[in-house]
Design a protein around this nucleic acid. Structure first.
Lengths: 168, 168
DNA sequence: CCAAAAGTGTTTTAAATACACCCATGC
DNA sequence: GCATGGGTGTATTTAAAACACTTTTGG
């Protein structure tokens, strides 16, 4: 989460390619003690935090936190963040929304780690791979990433537009 | 669907017990050619249409239509209605939201007919009953409804508050 | 006794789960 | 050659799907 208390995330300030999804409109009269504020909350996904900080000076003071360790947030913003997380969790299980949280090419281990950390539970590597593949979510790039150990095959998402897919 | 073109459904005009769920906030600048109107759309569910017409004179002119045969609607209201229907369909399969579309007691056949008509597909009576029962969705009332044929057992929902349940 | 809706089980098929070892590389 | 992360298959369990007849009542 990118939390910039005095400068809420502005959809139009993001670089073009970021995925945006409307979450919920918060309008409880008591959510702000000084005025009746109606906020239409959006969730933006990116694989590259730097793009968010860079797109406007307003966000330069923002900070990233693990979702499980958010600092105290103003107003009902913890509620908003919780809503975003639960939506993201749900959509990971029935859409290809993960395409917007990973770079153009990635290893299977990176995909699995994304799922495991957002869902906050360990996944069986073999069963996970079987289902992802059966869902036709990925395209193999035929390339590998070399590193200190056995090279890992690289993949990209077959589709970037978010769509429903049975998978978990 | 209750369509009252010149008098949009006002949540607070409904009788107390109606289930209300926020759908989406429509804010496309071009949705109304005359002004930039932002609409926070809600879906209300009731088992009793008369309660809606009765709650305010503004709704007296409203009419009910089969969702599959809506008349032409103003602005982007067909989009809103479509959104509502798809949300309802989805929630029938993983929540007990049907509790708000049936009276306090009902027969199994009535429940099945509700599901079949909203989902627009026939359901196998035995498999449907097995899953609904396995989900613990219903409470048997021990009473029956007498009619021209074999009496049908009456049920009510175990919970009225909407909650997630694996079932279809 | 007949028409009409209510109610009930079993078999087959598919999917989810549980589980442990070999492989390829850099150092 | 060893440490490390990458990659693979099978057996079991559970759930979904397909399918047809008997029961109870009113008229």
């Amino acid at each position: 989460l990118f939390a910039a208390p005095s400068a809420p995330l502005e959809p139009h300030g993001l670089t073009g390619s970021a995925y945006l999804e409307q979450l919920f409109t918060f309008g409880d009269p008591s959510r702000d003690p000084l005025a009746h504020v109606v906020s239409v909350a959006y969730m933006a996904l990116t694989d590259d935090p730097a793009r968010v900080s860079a797109c406007s000076s307003k966000y330069a003071s923002g900070k990233w936190y693990e979702v499980t360790a958010l600092p105290p947030l103003a107003y009902d913003h913890a509620l908003v963040a919780g809503y975003a997380l639960s939506r993201l969790r749900a959509k990971l299980t029935y859409t290809n929304i993960a395409a917007h949280l990973l770079p153009a090419s990635f290893t299977f281990a990176e995909l699995e780690e994304l799922y495991a950390s957002v869902l906050e539970r360990p996944l069986d590597r073999r069963n996970f791979r079987r289902r992802i593949m059966a869902a036709g979510l990925l395209r193999s790039l035929g390339r590998t990433r070399r590193g200190p150990h056995r090279p890992a095959s690289l993949y990209s998402f077959a589709q970037r537009s978010v769509q429903m897919i049975e998978m978990l």
